[in-house]
Design a protein around this nucleic acid. Structure first.
Lengths: 197, 197
DNA sequence: CCTACCGATCGGTAGG
DNA sequence: CCTACCGATCGGTAGG
């Protein structure tokens, strides 16, 4: 007789996860205490453990759900009929959109994954490495097809792209509010035109 | 009768600071304990306090020494006779050089400054804001002079540059070793040619 | 530079 | 979901 999860169960865990993501982003994983988290939600620290197993599980869920999302998207791009440069643009637009709509999860996964339990670190690193490798294939094909400058160094270009997107985070905290779509178009403009042959 | 610092005093504090920077980079400021730090140096935790005042002082020294260094360099660039685009290139080369030669300090300052004592946070944020404002002036002049694309959004371009440099850190950890100068030239190539009119 | 130790805070459990 | 509490670890001090 399996216990059936009610809607309430699901919702509460999500509330905890979302609140944790906001807290971890603001103060960092190690500097965030379960007491802080509980207070933000309005319960006692001990009560959290009716919904989650541990603090480290929260970080695990944040990091691996984002990794799954990014991998899924990359796969759909790989299967599309677009040109290589267009594929890179699609990846860039997806990442920018995630950074804007879902910034707590994106930033925490990117910044705090080093605090994952040791058992998961290698697996997470492999996923990141694999993601870059698949981007490498797309760009390399773009160079072969004469679409992309052949002088560029592919791995460092990938890092440039990946870390440029992280820059959007500062925009969030900034006083000089730039409309998200303007930021997106500007980033596409510089990076894509910088790669284009 | 002022006490005169011997060479040994200076050296020991620097050893502590350098070791701390490496540790903070690896594990993060909050996750690094003074006992870990002492062990790396080969003394007891209590002995650290003959050379430093507190853990937070270490972070303060790391962050504010880097801020001073970057500000000094920016000032020398502002006073040079180069064109605006050349000035941006000089700033970029300086930042890349720092990231390669002095990566522990650069990365810790960039990533861990949020853990500074509250009394220093505002001051540090102001320095960062001021640095970006001065870069903004240089780029804006480049646009007026017809050197730089007028379609680009200046603040988001600055963020793009600043965060692109951070990408070099991954290179450090990477297996695919790219020579530093190749990385530097590639980054200049994409970013500067992306901005150029 | 060490031994010994402090008060505070942490993640998590027991039991209801 | 709460009260009560645990063992571990933290930054830092006293005193030599």
């Amino acid at each position: 007789m399996a216990r059936i999860k009610t809607d309430k169960d699901v919702t509460k865990k999500e509330v905890i996860l979302n609140t944790a993501a906001g807290l971890f982003r603001q103060r960092g994983y190690k500097a965030s205490s379960m007491r802080d988290l509980a207070e933000k939600i309005g319960i006692e620290a001990a009560s959290l453990y009716n919904h989650i197993r541990s603090k480290s599980e929260l970080l695990y869920d944040i990091c691996f759900s984002m990794a799954a999302l990014y991998n899924e998207h990359l796969e759909s791009v790989e299967n599309s009929k677009s040109s290589s440069l267009k594929k890179i643009e699609e990846i860039l637009r997806f990442q920018i959109k995630q950074m804007i709509d879902n910034s707590d999860f994106v930033i925490v996964a990117d910044r705090e994954w080093v605090h994952l339990d040791e058992a998961y670190i290698t697996s997470y690193q492999n996923m990141k490495h694999n993601y870059r490798k698949r981007m490498n294939h797309i760009i390399t094909k773009g160079i072969q097809d004469g679409e992309i400058k052949s002088e560029i160094n592919v791995p460092s270009t990938i890092w440039l792209i990946l870390h440029a997107v992280n820059g959007i985070e500062s925009w969030h905290r900034s006083k000089t509010k730039i409309p998200p779509n303007e930021l997106e178009e500007n980033m596409i403009l510089i990076l894509i035109s910088g790669m284009k042959k």
